[in-house]
């Protein structure tokens, strides 16, 4: 298991090199990478604030839950904070399991919970100012399926 909360950029493909491989009990690896998207065409960058200490604790608790529930062989969560350029990776999740359904479900579970239960706050920076991104009702609703 690897959890990283970092300001530095990361390379998703490098993080996946060898992940889940070389063992007999893993038949499926799933990964998701979130990129900084600009929906308005006005964004210059995304700024992410977090709660040092709680962030790592909250993510570790979610990963432990996922490992137990889907019997994962391994899991990775990387999430950046600070100033991010458009198109850059914000975060990634990877799961390794015996079968693909468990790997997919665990990755989706982690994504859903990271959105609204890990203490990160996004702010969109434009030429004319900055605005905090508001949480969506649908993000909260997504948790009920788990």
């Amino acid at each position: 298991m690897r959890i990283a909360v970092q300001e530095a950029a990361f390379d998703p493909s490098a993080e996946l090199a060898g992940f889940g491989q070389g063992r007999a009990d893993v038949g499926a690896v799933v990964s998701f990478t979130g990129l900084v998207r600009d929906d308005t065409g006005q964004m210059q960058a995304l700024e992410i604030e977090h709660y040092p200490g709680m962030t790592e604790r909250a993510i570790a608790a979610l990963v432990e839950q996922a490992i137990t529930r889907w019997a994962l062989a391994d899991a990775v969560v990387i999430h950046r904070y600070g100033r991010l350029e458009i198109g850059a990776p914000i975060m990634m999740v990877a799961t390794a399991a015996r079968h693909r359904q468990a790997a997919f479900e665990a990755a989706e579970f982690l994504m859903d919970y990271l959105k609204s239960r890990a203490p990160f706050w996004k702010k969109e920076i434009t030429a004319t100012g900055a605005a905090w991104v508001e949480a969506k009702e649908s993000d909260e609703a997504a948790l009920s399926r788990w």
Partner: peptide, 10 residues
Amino acid sequence: VAFFPPMTGG
């Protein structure tokens, strides 16, 4: 004690 708006990670 920490106060903050609803989280927007991911």
